[in-house]
Design a protein around this nucleic acid. Structure first.
Lengths: 343, 343
DNA sequence: CTGAAAGCGCTTACAG
DNA sequence: CTGAAAGCGCTTACAG
C-alpha cells in the first residue's frame, strides 16, 4: 500500500507531550503514571492511531498472526476443520492467514515460504500430505529453518515422513471399523471409491478397509477399487466408472463423504436407489451428510476438534524431547444408506 | 515468535561478498551484474534465506497480504465466495488473511483494526452488514483512517451506509423473480423462513419477495414470516415454529439455501414430503443443494465470481471520483422441490 | 552498476 | 517512573 498519512507513535507522543517510550508503554499497558497514561490514550484515540504491526514485529514484539494452509476452503471437510482453528485463534486474539493450495504441492511449499517470511509464530498444515520424496525434501528445506528460527508447526492428517507435532485421525482403524460394521450388516462384495494414491489418507483408509476384510476372509477385488479426485465430481466419475465396469458389489465405500455425495448423484442418474440397489458408506461425517437422502453411513471424525487441537498444540510449547502426536478416533455411524442384508 | 537464528540479508551479503544494497537488488530482480547476482542467489539458497516480510514492509516495499473478513468459513455460502477470493489472490501471489467473525459485530471491527495494523493493502468484507447505527459509526471510524492511509476496501453484499466499492448480489430483484416463478407455478399461499432483521440481505430479499407478491395481489401474512439465524439449525427451528403455528401455505421460501436445508429436515421429521405436502425454495445456490432430495429450487448467485470480482476490485485502482458498484444478478433455477399446482 | 547511509515505526535495555 | 538511544532487517534515494 502507498502509505500517505499514517499516524505514528511519534505523533501520539507529541500530542500527549511525552516521550516515545512512555507512549509505547502506556499503549502496551505497562506501568505508567495514570495521568500520563490517560493523556496518551486520549491522544491515540483522538488521532485514530493504530500501531504498525510490522514495526512491532521488527522491534521484537510477538506477532499475532498465525498461518494455516489447507487444500481447499471450499471443501466442507476443510471448512469444518478450519472452523475449529479459527475458534481457538479468535479466543486467543490471533489473526489467521488462511491459504488454499488447491492441491498443488508447489503452491503449498510457496505458502510455507511466505508464512516464514511473515514470521508467523505458528503454521498449521491441514490435510493429507503427498507421498512424494522430492516434495518432502523441498518441504523439509522450508520447515527446518523455520523451526530453527523458533517457529511452531502443527499438522492435521499428515504423512509419516515429516516429523512434526500432529493431530492424526485414526484413518486406518476407522476404515477397519467400517469394514466390520459393513460385514456385520451382511455385506460380502464391496467396491471402493478411492482418492489419489499419493495421499497418505488414501493409503491408510484403503489399507485399513482391505486388511480388515481380508481378516474376515473377504477379498477386495482390485478391479472394484476406482480412483478419482477427492471431490464431489471425483466421486461421481469414479462411481460412473464402476457402473461401466459392471458393478458387482452390494456396498460401495467412498473414502470420503464428499466423494459419496458424488456417488449418490451418479447412482441416481443411473436409476439406482440407495440402499435398495446398492449401499453406500463414507468417511469424515461432514455436517451435510445427515441431510442427504438417505442420510449417509460414515466414520464420524470430530472435525472441528481436529482444528482446535492442532491450533492449541501449535500455541503451546512442546516441553518434551519428541514430537507430540494426538490421535483422534473415528466412530462408525450407521445411518440409512447401508442396508442390512438377509442371511 | 522468539527469533533464535534468523538468517538476514546481511548474512547473505557477507557470504556473497557484496554490499547490502546489491544483495537486496539481486534478490529483487533489479539490474545487477550477472556474476554478482549469481553469487548472491547462491548464497541465499545455501543459507535458506527468507526475507523478513516485516522489514520489507517497514522499509517501504509493498506488502503482499490482503485481509478478508467473513461471518463464518464453515458456511458453504462464505466458503464458495472465499474460494473465489483465494483463486484471484493466488493468481496474484497474494497471501490471504481470513478472519471469521462468527457474526459478532464487535469482533468484525476488531479484525479491521488488526488488518489495519498489518498494513494490509486491501481488506474485503464478505457478507451482510448490520443495520445498527452504533456499529456503523465504529466501523467507519476504523475504515476512514485506513482508506486515508491508502488502503483499499471492497465489500460483498453489504449495507448501504458504508460508501465502499461493492459487489452486490441483486437480492431484491432475485427474490422478486422467485416470487414470480412461484406464482407461475400456481402458488398463492406462502410462508417465509427469514433471517435476522438487522441484516441488510434479509430486508432486501424479504422486501423483494413481499412486494412482488403484493404486485400480483397476493399478500404475505406477517404471521407466516418466521425469523431464525441464518444457519441450517436456524432453518430447522423456524420451520418447526411455522409448523407449530399451523402451516397454511403451499410453498415455503427460505431466504437462504442453508436455512432451506434445515427446513427439509424439519419437514421430514414431521412426516411431510417435499414437494408433495409443501414446496420449498431457497436463495444462493450453494453447490450442495443440487444433491439434496429433491434438488432445491433457488435463486442462483455466481458465488465464486462474487469473491473474484471483489478481490479484483480491491486490487485495481478506483480512478473515478465515486465508488464502484458491481451488481450481480441472480437467476431462478426451478428444480424438483417446488410443485406445479393444478389450475 | 555498486556502495554507504538514512530511514521505515516500533520496543526495550540502559541510565537517570 | 521516564527519556534518550540503539537496534530490529530491509529498501531506496543519493553519490560515485
Amino acid at each position: 500500500m502507498q502509505p500517505r498519512t499514517h499516524v505514528t507513535l511519534e505523533d501520539v507522543a507529541r500530542a500527549a507531550d511525552v516521550s516515545l517510550a512512555t507512549a509505547s508503554r502506556a499503549l502496551n499497558g505497562m506501568r505508567v503514571t495514570p495521568q500520563l497514561r490517560d493523556r496518551v490514550l486520549a491522544a491515540a484515540a483522538q488521532l485514530a492511531y493504530t500501531p504498525n504491526a510490522h514495526a512491532r514485529a521488527l522491534a521484537g514484539a510477538s506477532h499475532r498472526t498465525v498461518g494455516v494452509i489447507c487444500h481447499d476452503v471450499t471443501d466442507p471437510y476443510f471448512a469444518a476443520v478450519a472452523g475449529g482453528v479459527m475458534r481457538v485463534a479468535g479466543a486467543n486474539d490471533l489473526l489467521v492467514m488462511l491459504a488454499s493450495t488447491f492441491r498443488d504441492p508447489e503452491r503449498e511449499i510457496a505458502y510455507v515460504s511466505m508464512l516464514r517470511a511473515e514470521r508467523a509464530p505458528a503454521i498449521l498444515l491441514i490435510g493429507s500430505g503427498f507421498e512424494d520424496a522430492r516434495w518432502e525434501r523441498a518441504m523439509e528445506a522450508e520447515l527446518k529453518p523455520y523451526l530453527d528460527g523458533g517457529g511452531r508447526v502443527a499438522v492435521v492428517s499428515r504423512h509419516r515422513s515429516l516429523k512434526l507435532d500432529s493431530v492424526l485421525p485414526e484413518n486406518r482403524a476407522g476404515a477397519a471399523a467400517m469394514a466390520r460394521a459393513l460385514l456385520e450388516l451382511g455385506h460380502r462384495r464391496f467396491a471402493v471409491l478411492s482418492g489419489p494414491r499419493a495421499l497418505t489418507t488414501v493409503t491408510d483408509r484403503l489399507g485399513g478397509f482391505r486388511d480388515e476384510l481380508a481378516a474376515a476372509g473377504v477379498t477386495l477385488d482390485p478391479a472394484a477399487v476406482v480412483e478419482g479426485p477427492f471431490t464431489r465430481d471425483g466421486g461421481y466419475q469414479a462411481m460412473t466408472e464402476l457402473l461401466a465396469r459392471g458393478l458387482d458389489a452390494t456396498c460401495v465405500f467412498a473414502l470420503t463423504d464428499v466423494m459419496a455425495i458424488g456417488a449418490y448423484a451418479a447412482l441416481r442418474d443411473h436409476g439406482l436407489s440407495v440402499p435398495g440397489d446398492v449401499s453406500v458408506a463414507g468417511f469424515d461425517d461432514i455436517p451435510i451428510v445427515r441431510d442427504l437422502t438417505p442420510p449417509l453411513t460414515t466414520v464420524a471424525l470430530p472435525l472441528q476438534q481436529l482444528g482446535e487441537k492442532a491450533m492449541e498444540m501449535a500455541l503451546t510449547e512442546n516441553t518434551g524431547r519428541r514430537r507430540r502426536i494426538l490421535r483422534m478416533a473415528g466412530e462408525v455411524v450407521v445411518r440409512a444408506s447401508t442396508a442390512k442384508l438377509g442371511a
